[in-house]
Amino acid sequence: MTPMLTVENLSASYGVVRALNDISLEVNEGEMVALLGVNGAGKSTTLKSITGVLRPVKGSIKFLGQEIANGKPEATVKRGLSLVPEGREIFGTLTVEENLRLGAFVSYQRDRYKADLKEMFELFPILEERFTQPGGLLSGGEQQMLAIARALMAHPKLLMLDEPSLGLSPAMTDQIFELIKGLRDRGSTILLVEQNAERALGIVDRAYLLASGEVQYSGTAEEIRRQVDIASVYFGGDDAAPCEVTQ
């Protein structure tokens, strides 16, 4: 079976600063895969390349057999890739309803939209309560739920989440991870980018560990746990320490 998403020998840079060096990864249908690593390891750069926000220097990105490197950001969602961006990126001046409607921008059909909204309300009851409020007034956790719901409105074949736990309280982080697990159990294919490796490994099938723009380890969650001392200073859960990255 060919993977849903294949990234091959991808390199990307910001000006003269090389951010990604020859990385390759795959996501199969129905799988939940994590991209782990510390700040600056190249996780977000990978997502930016996949979504067309950043033009890679070289390499190929195939989604469902189609080359998508160098595509436009607006084409991404039409292909079936939705991103829950880092920092949530809620439209603060728009209401929750409008945020969700934008999520459905490419596939808007009145009946389907109504049904989808209902589904989102079941997943995230808080959004129904806040339906007519501006997105900017929501709390961090609520905004994260809105961001996920907004991405789901497009019925993505692959859902990408960029640091969903960033800036959330531990309790809220638990809740978000529970939700993501729920999405996976419903059959969604997910690419999860996380700094919080301990937590992420608890819910994913496979993971790639990035460091200074390169894939250092890859394997099932089990294998990664065995190969790498997760709790070490390298990166970790609650006692995460600044890391030394060797060039």
Binding site: T51, V53, K72, P73, E74, A75, T76, V77, K78, L83, P85, E89, F91, L102, G103, F105, V106, R150, A154
Partner: peptide, 8 residues
């Protein structure tokens, strides 16, 4: 940019 990612 986020708007573009919504497909706009």
């Amino acid at each position: 940019t986020t708007t573009r990612l919504m497909g706009v």
